[in-house]
């Protein structure tokens, strides 16, 4: 098991290296939007675009040979020298450090609530399949996975924000700084973002857990446990949930991150929350290549790290796994 985990950790580094190389390759192969922007802004103020282009290339070391650039790129990345963000007039790393808290403040509660409630509902509807409760839960599930989160956010703003002015329709980043992260005013302005993100993630968690639990419910050992005299609660928690946790662990981080990434970009753009999502959005709009790169890499690294956690959880949860084979 130790060897297995060590191998997975090593693999994590390989995956990160692949990710870095890939992004380098993509950027080198692309027409480089940052350069185009620089050239265009030169032309706009009447300077010689050709010269500006040269300047830009020199400033960004684009005139060096590819191997040299690749080497520098890798060294910079590893030493956390991720470059300068033109649009924020700030180094990229501090920018990320500024932003992550604004994302975490709603993402972590959503993660916890959606897992607890989603698994609870999923397990309960698997326990009573094809009853009214199950159908209601399955309808809620379909609703949650189908409703476009950006549209849902706008509808909530129209209904609750602009009509009755029940909740703030956009986020004021001053509030958590002045009144504290847990202040009532901050929590109030998080109601809509949390609702929107929660709807989707809860629905997915519920559907996954219901499907896995239903699969386990038909297993022979559940019948054996029933024949032992186990109570329904014991059957569902001790046997079904514990067993369903094995397949669920393999998709947990991946599926949630997928919802969270697209969700956070959209939600932060709509509610103006200055977190990682909004940073990604503005970086693209402002064609700030180092920042685009940084936000992409942060998400990719998080995904790789999450995958490592999944793999470790998997071997802890499933004693059957053959280490030699993986």
């Amino acid at each position: 098991m130790k060897w297995y985990i060590l191998k997975r950790v090593l693999w994590t580094f390989v995956a990160m290296w692949i990710a870095l190389t890939l992004t380098f390759g993509l950027i080198s192969a692309s027409p480089n939007p940052g350069q185009m922007r620089a050239t265009m802004s030169c032309a706009a103020v009447g300077e010689n675009p050709q010269e500006c282009r040269e300047q830009f290339r020199e400033r960004n070391n684009l005139d060096q040979p590819v191997t040299e650039r690749y080497k520098n790129y890798m060294v910079n990345m590893v030493t956390l020298n991720w470059g300068w963000s033109e649009s924020r007039s700030q180094y990229v790393i501090p920018a990320i450090l500024d932003a992550w808290r604004f994302t975490a403040q709603y993402a972590i509660p959503v993660l916890v609530i959606s897992t607890l409630v989603g698994y609870g509902l999923g397990l309960y509807s698997a326990y009573k399949p094809y009853t009214v409760t199950d159908y209601t839960a399955s309808f809620v599930g379909f609703f949650g996975i189908s409703i476009p989160n950006f549209w849902f956010a706008l509808v909530l703003i129209i209904l609750l924000g602009t009509r009755v002015e029940l909740v703030p329709t956009y986020y004021q980043s001053g509030i958590p700084i002045q009144q504290g992260w847990l202040s009532l005013a901050n929590l109030r302005q998080l109601i809509l973002p949390v609702t929107v993100l929660l709807t989707a993630s809860l629905a997915w968690q519920m559907r996954y857990s219901r499907a896995q639990a239903l699969e386990q419910m038909n297993a022979e050992f559940v019948k054996v446990a029933k024949a032992k005299g186990a109570s329904q609660y014991r059957l569902m928690i001790w046997h079904v949930l514990r067993m369903a946790a094995v397949p669920l662990s393999t998709s947990f981080v991946g599926s949630l991150l997928a919802i969270f990434w697209s969700g956070s970009v959209i939600i932060e753009q709509i509610f103006a929350i200055p977190g990682l999502g909004l940073m990604t959005y503005t970086a693209i709009v402002e064609q700030d290549t180092p920042l685009v790169l940084a936000t992409t890499l942060v998400t990719v690294f998080l995904a790789i790290f999450g995958n490592l956690l999944e793999d470790i959880a998997y071997v802890i949860l499933d004693p059957r796994i053959d280490y030699g084979n993986r």
């Binding site: 992004t23 990604t280 693209i284 685009v292 998400t299 990719v300 995904a303 995958n307």
Partner: peptide, 10 residues
């Protein structure tokens, strides 16, 4: 493992 949405944005 790669987050598709971010990759698409990039």
């Amino acid at each position: 493992v790669f987050p598709t949405f971010m990759l698409l944005l990039l």
